[in-house]
Simulated assay, not measured.
Amino acid sequence: MGAMQPMHWLIVAVVVVILFGSKKLPDAARGLGRSLRIFKSEVKEMQNDDSAPASAPVAQPAPAQLPTANTAVVANGAAAPVAQPTEVKPL
Rank of each mutant, 00 (worst) to 15 (best):
L36N: 13
P61C: 02
A3Y: 05
W9K: 02
D27I: 00
P67W: 07
P67Y: 02
Q5M: 08
Q65C: 04
L36M: 15
T71R: 02
L32Q: 11
D50V: 13
A54N: 05
V17G: 07
E87H: 04
S55F: 12
R34F: 14
V43L: 13
E42I: 12
T86W: 01
R34I: 15
E45Q: 11
N48G: 09
A59I: 14
L91Y: 03
S51D: 12
P26M: 00
A54V: 14
K23F: 05
A72M: 13
G2F: 03
P6V: 01
N70A: 12
P90Q: 05
N48P: 01
D49V: 14
P26A: 01
A75G: 02
A64S: 06
L36I: 13
S55W: 14
P67S: 06
V14L: 14
V12M: 06
A56G: 07
A62D: 06
V12E: 11
R30E: 11
A13P: 00
Q5H: 04
V73I: 13
A56E: 13
E45A: 15
L36Y: 10
A75C: 02
M4D: 04
G21H: 06
A13L: 10
D27N: 03
Q5Y: 05
Q84T: 15
Q60W: 04
G21F: 04
V16P: 00
I38S: 12
R37Q: 14
V14G: 06
H8C: 02
A59H: 10
V16T: 09
L19D: 07
V43T: 08
A83G: 05
H8G: 05
G2M: 10
R34K: 15
P85H: 06
S55Y: 11
V43H: 04
Q84P: 02
R34A: 15
A59N: 10
E42P: 00
F39N: 12
Q60T: 13
W9R: 06
T86D: 04
K24G: 03
Q5S: 08
T68K: 11
R30H: 09
M4G: 00
P90M: 01
A59D: 11
R34P: 01
A29H: 03
V82P: 02
L10A: 10
I38H: 09
W9I: 08
T86F: 04
V88K: 07
P6D: 01
S35G: 15
A62Q: 05
A52Y: 08
G2E: 11
L25T: 00
L66K: 14
S22W: 14
E87Q: 09
M46K: 08
V58Y: 03
P85L: 07
P57M: 08
R34M: 15
G77C: 05
D49L: 15
N76K: 01
D50G: 13
